[in-house]
Design a protein around this nucleic acid. Structure first.
Length: 138
DNA sequence: GCCAACGTTGGC
DNA sequence: GCCAACGTTGGC
């Protein structure tokens, strides 16, 4: 199983919006970056991801699940771009801030810290566990 | 609002 | 294929 991190500006598409989509989930459209797209192409249904609020909050707020493999982005005519669908699973009991990640042993190599601009990122199993613990989930 | 980091574009 | 110019992202 793979672990990932999805970034979104909450005033464009935030965690409450994601939750409102329910089990049907939502297409993660709009990504126009090869690295991010390739990450989505590598995803499998059932993979889990963190939902991160950039700019406002700068914190990981919830867990999502990939519910559809990568398919053409409905918002683009360009066949280069495709994307997965994700659905909200549950919120973290306590959001985990970027600041916390920066000083947390074991998270030094997180893509979030070292390549802040990549909007869809891989997360290692170790990083996943550490952040779950910080977020109050076991 | 600023600006550093990064990705993309396009002229050569 | 190189690289300067430009646009965007996102932390501060």
């Amino acid at each position: 199983m793979g672990f990932w991190l999805f970034k979104s500006e909450p005033d464009t598409w935030g965690w409450p919006d994601q939750v409102a989509r329910g089990a049907a989930g939502e297409e993660w459209h709009g990504v126009r970056n090869y690295q991010a797209r390739n990450n989505m192409r590598a995803m499998q249904v059932g993979d889990l991801g963190y939902f991160y609020h950039s700019n406002i909050g700068k914190e990981i707020v919830g867990i999502v699940e990939v519910c559809r493999e990568s398919q053409p982005d409905s918002t683009s005519d360009d066949p280069r771009w495709d994307c997965v669908c994700i659905r909200a699973v549950q919120p973290l009991l306590r959001p985990v801030t970027l600041e916390t990640c920066k000083v947390q042993p074991g998270l030094e190599k997180m893509v979030l810290i070292n390549n802040a601009r990549l909007s869809v990122q891989p997360v290692t199993a170790d990083e996943w566990r550490i952040i779950c613990n910080l977020g109050g989930l076991s």
